[in-house]
């Protein structure tokens, strides 16, 4: 499991506004290995979705990728011509979006949309394209896929639609699928089914997933690796189990502490005080400093990424939490992978 399929290196994406340009993503680096699920966690505005769009080159003006590399199996996607990049999208790296009500075209049949996706990359007949679409629907556990091809999106439930979107992303067996909060809009029970399906797909097909979410519970049940983003940067990364069991960054700790399922009923939930700074008003030095219980004057200087556990883990903090100071490890490790 050491073969890296996607390597994001120092990615930076800026948006030009009337008040000046700001970096929504500011030097993000992480690796994704074959068949691995990497959770990209953060609050709204942390830059996690922009990271996803940047990987596929789907940033539209006024946004612009201003630095870094996105290596897909060694090939830099950011250096490709628009047409070559288009040939990669959908074929070798695909994406699934948050709201399944909106990602499928309401006026086209499922089969028409999926067949178009097949034929965007392969010269096959319409019948062959539909056959492949049907097989893909079967792969994601949709019953009677033949009939679904003739259905319109509004005739399917939200969970079904998200399965259709995932099946569409799978059509060309891409190396990586970027999933932008694909279960946020779904019922919890449907969410569980989809997560189990994704875990199975990753294990069986070797497709890697970058799972963008604000929900740590999702990450704990699905992801192998986790990257925690704050204010456009990855503040902590490492194996999901280890990060959840003993976070190094105070922000990760704060996020974990506010997950309701990890607390006794009736117990008061701890919160991370304050809110994420707007990109234009990020403080000097560590962006988390104003909200951080461990902040000192040292935090006025930009922190440097520090690695632990033989480079398996990293945190961007002047005062990382020592493993023994981390909170109650026993209760979290049981919660971490119980759903998978």
């Amino acid at each position: 499991m050491s073969d890296v399929v996607l390597s994001v290196q120092g990615l930076a994406t800026a948006f030009a506004t009337r008040a000046g340009s700001f970096k929504a993503v500011d030097g993000v680096s992480f690796d994704v290995r074959r068949g691995e699920v990497v959770g990209l966690v953060g609050e709204s505005g942390s830059g996690k979705s922009v990271t996803g769009y940047s990987i596929l080159g789907l940033i539209e003006p006024p946004g612009q990728i201003v630095g870094g590399r996105v290596l897909l199996e060694g090939e830099d996607l950011l250096a490709l011509s628009p047409d070559k990049l288009r040939r990669m999208r959908g074929a070798r790296v695909a994406m699934v979006f948050q709201d399944p009500m909106m990602t499928l075209n309401p006026v086209l049949k499922i089969g028409t949309q999926m067949a178009a996706a097949v034929r965007a990359h392969d010269r096959v007949s319409k019948a062959q394209a539909l056959a492949r679409a049907r097989d893909a629907l079967g792969t994601v556990g949709i019953p009677s896929p033949e009939e679904r091809l003739d259905a319109y999106p509004h005739q399917l439930s939200g969970g079904m639609r998200q399965r259709v979107a995932i099946a569409t992303a799978l059509l060309h067996s891409p190396s990586v699928i970027i999933a932008d909060e694909p279960t946020t809009a779904l019922d919890v029970s449907i969410q569980g089914q989809i997560l189990a399906e994704v875990r199975r797909l990753a294990d069986e097909t070797g497709t890697a997933f970058v799972w963008i979410t604000h929900d740590l519970a999702v990450v704990s049940s699905l992801a192998d690796e986790v990257c925690v983003m704050y204010a456009g940067r990855i503040v902590e990364r490492g194996p999901a189990e280890a990060v959840i069991a003993s976070p190094r960054h105070p922000y990760t700790q704060g996020l974990l502490a506010s997950v309701p399922s990890l607390h006794e009923p009736g117990e008061r939930l701890p919160q991370v005080p304050g809110s994420a700074p707007p990109p234009m008003e990020r403080p000097e030095g560590c962006a988390f400093r104003p909200r951080c219980p461990r902040a000192t004057d040292a935090c006025l200087v930009d922190p440097v990424i520090q690695t632990y556990d033989g480079e398996r883990r990293a945190a961007l903090c002047h005062h990382p939490i020592e493993p023994d100071a981390a909170w109650n490890t026993s209760s979290t490790s049981t919660a971490s992978r119980s759903a998978s």
Partner: peptide
């Protein structure tokens, strides 16, 4: 979103608009 999704599937612009 569905136009974005169509682009994410690598559909050529002509098809994104036409279809």
């Amino acid at each position: 979103d569905f136009v974005r999704f169509a682009r994410a599937q690598g559909l050529p612009e002509r098809q994104v608009v036409g279809l």
